[in-house]
Design a protein around this nucleic acid. Structure first.
Lengths: 350, 350
DNA sequence: ATTAGAAAGGAAACCGGTTTCAGATCCGGA
DNA sequence: TCCGGATCTGAAACCGGTTTCCTTTCTAAT
C-alpha cells in the first residue's frame, strides 16, 4: 500500500544487470565471483552497472546454491559480561578478515533458550558454531549436551571453550592450571600463606578446575588447605562476590589474599573488604581472572590473568574455518595465560 | 575426505520428508508453515518424520522465496560498552519473542568498517536495520550518513537512536533534556552550585545536547556558567574520564559535583578524584548517565540516569517490525529516563 | 586459408523452500 | 443417485544466485 512502486525502488538482481549489459546472468555471476575468465569489455560493462545501481548480490541466494553460508554462529552465555564481549569482538574481527560473517546469539544462561538458539543457528545454516559458556561449561549435563550436539548439530563443525573428554568437537581452552600457578607463585612470592578462593559455582567446569588446581598449588607450596578459605555457590557477578566475601568474614576467616574466579566477582569482593574496614592491598591482596576493563577500572586496579583475547578469538575462528574447509587441526588447543600485576596485590602483612 | 559419507549423515530436506511420507513437498511445506489445511493423517505422518529425522527447514531457502528473512540487523559502535550490550540483549529478547533473529555487527567505532558492515547486512537481506551509536551519533558527517542510508539501504527500514532532522528513518531517542533536568534538580537540591560536566566529545550528538541542556539548566537554576567546569574531547571510557578530570584539577577548577556523560567515564573521574585526596560524596558528588552495572560496581555506587533497557530495546524492535510490516508508527519516539540515586551524590560541602 | 585447441559465454539445472493454480476428493442436499 | 461447493493436494513456477555442460568464438600454428 504505502510502498513506493515507482519502479526505481525495486531490488535489483543479477538478471537486471545481465539484461542491461546484454549478457547472460551466468556471465554477471562470473564477473562478481571472479572465478572464470570474462572478456574485458563485458566485464567492464557489468562492473559499471553494478556500481551504477549499487548492486549487492543476495547472500541468501548465494548460500543456498553454494550450501556454504559463510556465516559462523556464536553462542555466548551473557554478552553483558565483558569477558564474552571481548571475546566476541575479537572473533568478529577474525571472521571478518577471513571473509566470514558472525551471527551472535545470547542465551542469558537459560538452557532452554540455549537449545532454541542452537536450532535457530542450524536453520540459518551457519557453516560452523562456536559456543562459549553456558552448558558447555556445566559439569553435569554433559550427556544432554553431547546428545544435543550429535542430534542437532550433526555435521556442522562445533568449537567450544569448555569440556574435554570424548566430545566430537574442537576445543580451544585456556591452560587454567598454568593460570592458577601464576597467581599462586605471585602471591606466595609476596609472602602470603592464607590464600582464599572465592566465587562461581563448582558445577561449572572452569571453576571446578580452579578449585582442584588451587589445592594442588597449595600442596606444592607446602601450605595447608583450609576449607573455610573457599567460598562458592554464586553466579559470576559483583553481587555474588560481595555476598561470598561477607560470608567468609562472618565465618571468621582471615585471608591475607583472595583469588576471585573472575574480575566481576573481584569487584564485589573488594567492596566487601573495604566495608569491613580493611585496606587493599595492605591488609588483603585481591587478584582475579579475565583481565577485562573491570580490572583496570577498579580501585586499586586489579592484578589479573590475561588471555590475550585477540589471539584467543582468532584461534577459535581459525579452528572453525579449518573445520569448515575440512583441513586438519588439533582438536584440542590451548591458550597460554599471562599474569598482569597491578595495585591490588602486595606484600603479605606481618 | 574425512567426511563421513555414510548416507545417514546427509542434510535432509523437505523433499526427503515428502518422499518418505508419500506426499508432495508442497504438503510438507503446508504442514510446517501451518497456513493451510492438511488432512490429519498426512499431517501426522509428516510431523512424525520431521521429529524422527530432527528436520529443520533451511531458513535461507525460505527467506529467498519469501523475500522476508525474519532477520533484523543491529549495528553497534562497541559491544564491549555495557550500554550497548544491555541494549542489544534487550533487543534480542524482544526480537526473539516476535519471531525474528538478530544479526549483530560491531563497528568498533571505525566509520569505514561501519560502511562495510552496512553492506554486509544488506547482502544478508535483513528485513530492517537498527543502528545504535557510530556515525548516527556524529554531528558532522550527517550528509554522508544520509547519503549512505539512501543509497545503500534503499527500501530497508532503518531505526536509529541518534539524529533527528529530516532523515528518512525511524528514531527512538532518549529524552535527554529530561535526563539532564533530573540530574540538575538532584544536585541543586543538595545545595551544589559548582557543577562540572565531563567526558565525551562535542561532535557527538548526545554529548552536544547534554552540553546545551546543561547550560540551560544552569540558567534555570540561576547558576553562572563557568567554562572551566566543562571538559570534553575524549572517548567514552574510563581512561578518558580520568584524564579529563585530572586536567580539570590541574586547571584549578573546584567543582562540588561532577556530571559524567556516561558511567564508564565516571569510573575514571572517580579515580582521579580519589587520587587527588578528595572523598566522594563528602567533598565531591559524582553522577553519570546509563546506569549500567558499572554504576552498581563502583565504590561508592554511582547515582545515574536509567533508561529502562527492557523498554528501550523493545521499542526499537517494535518500531522496526512495524516498519517491516508497513504499519504506521511515530517516526520519532521518546524514551523517558529515570534517576537512580546511590551513594556517590550527597550534600554539597559548606 | 585451414583447423586444432583454448577461451568465452549462454542455456539450463540446481540449491530448498513457498505459493499459485487447477485438478481431485470429499461432503451434504435434492 | 447425482450435483454443487468446500476441502485437499500435487505440479510447476518462483526466489536469485552458482555451476555444469556444451556451443560459439578466438587465437595461433600448419
Amino acid at each position: 500500500m504505502a510502498e513506493q512502486n515507482n519502479g526505481e525502488n525495486k531490488v535489483i538482481t543479477i538478471y537486471d544487470i545481465a539484461k542491461e549489459a546484454g549478457v547472460s546472468p551466468a556471465t554477471v555471476s562470473r564477473v562478481l565471483t571472479n572465478n572464470a575468465k570474462v572478456r574485458q569489455e563485458k566485464r567492464d560493462k557489468v562492473l559499471y552497472l553494478v556500481r551504477k545501481y549499487n548492486f549487492r548480490p543476495n547472500a541468501l541466494a548465494r548460500s543456498l546454491s553454494d550450501t556454504r553460508s559463510k556465516v559462523i554462529g556464536i553462542l555466548v552465555a551473557d554478552i553483558r559480561n565483558p569477558y564474552y564481549a571481548e571475546l566476541f569482538a575479537s572473533c568478529e574481527r577474525a571472521a571478518h578478515n577471513a571473509g566470514y560473517t558472525v551471527l551472535l546469539t545470547n542465551s542469558s544462561g537459560d538452557p532452554q533458550r540455549e537449545g532454541e538458539l542452537i536450532e535457530l543457528l542450524q536453520e540459518q545454516r551457519v557453516d560452523a558454531f562456536i559456543q562459549m559458556g553456558g552448558s558447555v561449561d556445566a559439569l553435569f549435563s554433559e550427556e544432554q549436551y553431547e546428545e544435543r550436539l550429535n542430534r542437532d548439530m550433526a555435521h556442522i563443525p562445533v568449537v567450544v571453550t569448555g569440556k574435554v573428554e570424548g566430545m566430537d568437537c574442537h576445543m580451544v581452552r585456556i591452560d587454567s592450571a598454568q593460570a592458577m600457578k601464576l597467581l599462586m607463585e605471585h602471591l606466595t612470592g609476596l609472602g602470603h600463606k592464607r590464600i582464599a578462593l572465592i566465587g562461581g559455582r563448582m558445577d561449572v567446569l572452569g571453576t571446578h578446575e580452579k578449585f582442584l588446581q588451587y589445592q594442588q598449588c597449595l600442596a606444592e607450596h607446602r601450605l595447608v588447605f583450609d576449607p573455610t578459605l573457599v567460598a562458592e555457590g554464586g553466579s559470576y557477578d559483583m553481587e555474588s562476590g560481595y555476598e561470598l566475601m561477607n560470608r567468609m568474614f562472618d565465618n571468621g576467616a582471615e585471608p591475607t589474599a583472595v583469588i576471585a574466579v573472575n574480575d566481576f566477582s573481584a569487584a564485589g569482593i573488594v567492596r566487601s573488604i573495604v566495608e569491613h574496614g580493611k585496606r587493599i592491598p595492605e591488609d588483603i591482596s585481591v587478584v582475579g581472572y579475565d583481565n577485562t576493563y573491570i580490572a583496570r577500572m577498579m580501585i586499586p586496579p586489579l592484578t589479573s590473568i590475561d588471555y590475550n583475547y585477540e589471539e584467543y578469538g582468532n584461534r577459535l575462528v581459525q579452528t572453525a574455518i579449518c573445520a569448515i574447509e575440512g583441513k586438519e587441526t588439533d582438536r584440542l588447543q590451548t591458550v597460554t595465560p599471562r599474569l598482569v600485576v597491578r595495585g591490588s596485590s602486595g606484600k603479605a602483612p606481618e
